[in-house]
């Protein structure tokens, strides 16, 4: 192998890295430039300082975290409950649900928001049922819960629960049924078997599924946009608003830098927890 040969191989190997550098790293470098640029020339933390001083950013950060944490906690509870039911109680539709979990990743999240609008929206199915079919007095004319915090949480729970179910189902699959039998043979009640034998085996899957869920709910945008939520502004929504509605690219870039740092930090923790998880 000559020098020239090795050089050409290195060049060939670096092509995808160069491409990714141009279409991914370069944009983020320019994003940083935009965020740090001072209007008069030069660089500084001016834009950041202005953003961080305002209430909008802090509100958006808290809204993002609140929604993501609430949705993730609900996903964890609902996802493990459904996974346990699929595994231990064969109910009609359980198999279909188990398979649905695998393709869920591929469908766009914002469609859930649209569906829920028809279901629970201002003129949705549930409200109409309430007033017309059941003959009950109309709920006060205010907007449905759907267009606030709980609507976003509901939509995110609907969409992201499978992301918890998948690893939990996989973990349940490898639990030795003899262990469950021995445990109940030793006198442990079903709830105790669940708590003392099944749950410890699920912990790594719950950590993995929960972290992924948290990351994705923090980054979620389509659901909130399509649902038309006005009073809940998350970080992605704030970026969108600053850039598209206000044309304030420096501010949008600064918020985006903060959001990216938050997400990458979370992702790093997630990867670490995956590596530390046994088996």
């Amino acid at each position: 192998m000559g020098r020239a040969h090795r050089l050409s191989r290195a060049l060939v190997a670096s092509v995808p890295l160069v491409v990714l550098g141009v279409i991914f790293l370069y944009p983020f470098a320019l994003l940083a430039v935009e965020a740090f640029a001072r209007p008069g020339g030069g660089y500084g933390f001016g834009t950041f300082a202005a953003i961080l001083a305002g209430h909008a950013f802090r509100d958006a950060l808290f809204a993002t975290l609140r929604i993501a944490l609430t949705a993730t906690a609900t996903c964890l509870v609902l996802g493990s409950a459904l996974a346990l039911l699929i595994r231990f109680v064969a109910f009609p539709g359980a198999r279909a649900l188990g398979r649905l979990v695998d393709v869920y990743l591929a469908f766009p999240s914002f469609l859930v928001a649209l569906s829920l609008t028809f279901l629970y929206g201002n003129s949705g199915l549930v409200r109409s049922l309430w007033t017309s079919a059941l003959g009950l007095p109309a709920v006060d004319a205010s907007r449905s819960f759907l267009y606030g915090f709980w609507g976003v949480v509901l939509a995110e729970v609907t969409y992201y629960t499978p992301f918890v179910m998948r690893p939990v189902l996989a973990a349940l699959e490898v639990i030795d049924r003899a262990q469950l039998e021995v445990a109940s043979g030793l006198g442990e009640r079903p709830w105790g078997v669940l708590r003392r034998v099944v749950f410890p085996e699920l912990v790594p899957a719950l950590i993995a599924g929960g972290s992924l869920c948290l990351l994705l709910t923090m980054n979620e945008f389509g659901i909130i946009l399509v649902m038309g939520v006005k009073d809940v502004i998350t970080l992605p929504m704030m970026i969108y608003g600053k850039a598209i509605d206000e044309f304030d690219y420096p501010a949008a870039s600064a918020v985006a830098i903060c959001n990216v740092a938050l997400s990458l930090g979370l992702n790093f923790t997630y990867r670490q927890s995956l590596e530390r998880a046994p088996r």
């Binding site: 980054n219 945008f221 992605p236 985006a256 959001n259 990216v260 990458l264 992702n267």
Partner: peptide, 8 residues
Amino acid sequence: PVAIPSVS
């Protein structure tokens, strides 16, 4: 890119 919000 998977970990970064798509809007960003």
